[in-house]
Amino acid sequence: MLHRDLLDMSEKMENIQSQSSQTRYDKGNLSLRSSNQRSGAMNSDEPNPLTDELAQLMMLVANNRCKTSFAKLFSHFAPKINSFGVQRLSQQGLAMDLVQETMSRVWTKAHLYNADKAAVSTWVFTIMRNQCFDMLRKVQHNREDAFGDDIWPLFESDDAENNDDDFLLSASLLQHVEELPPLQRQVVQGIYMQELTQQELADKLNIPIGTVKSRLRLGLEKLKSFMEKHYD
């Protein structure tokens, strides 16, 4: 059981890795997979050319910081976000703020978008709804807080089955993560809780990626032994 949990952890690590290196660039594969996956959820058998086009634009923004692609995404989404904002916030000025906030996050969080998990529309909708929730709190209760992303997590798996497990697993694991030596803890937390790629984490901590890998390995091995000691 616990072995399986830790195996899951390592698998997740592999996923993050491959996502950053290979899959992201493999557009043909990605759009094929995303339309397959979506057709189940949408009850629509036809591939949606718009969906694939949006996913490609996101990929260009994420990988190449391509402003032309951003402009295309903006032209597609901004008027619709604006009309959502007018409906929900009842003020043109606030609606324009919602467009700005939402599109800013599309730009800064683009690297976290995963076409296998959701269509671009769904991802942007989530960002927009969360921002709008926080803006409504500000208007209604004069509260400057940002809880939208806690309520509807943006960057985690939409995979419903994992949800229960994640929470229950993290309940026991988190305690053990706290007990790791600081350097290992930092890496384990960066990869699993902040969901950074190994490269991103290496850049952030200003250490070689090899060091990230070895600290992560040590940390995971230690966690595994904590769990075994504690539960066997």
Partner: peptide, 30 residues
């Protein structure tokens, strides 16, 4: 959420046409 996002972003007929003024503001923002 999936259904809402499709309704909001993929079906053009539900979107009210933005006024010329709003178009101008969106262009400026872009």
């Amino acid at each position: 959420t999936l259904a809402l996002s499709e309704q909001q972003f993929e079906q053009n007929q539900t979107i009210q046409p933005a006024s010329i003024e709003q178009h101008g503001q969106l262009d400026d923002l872009l």
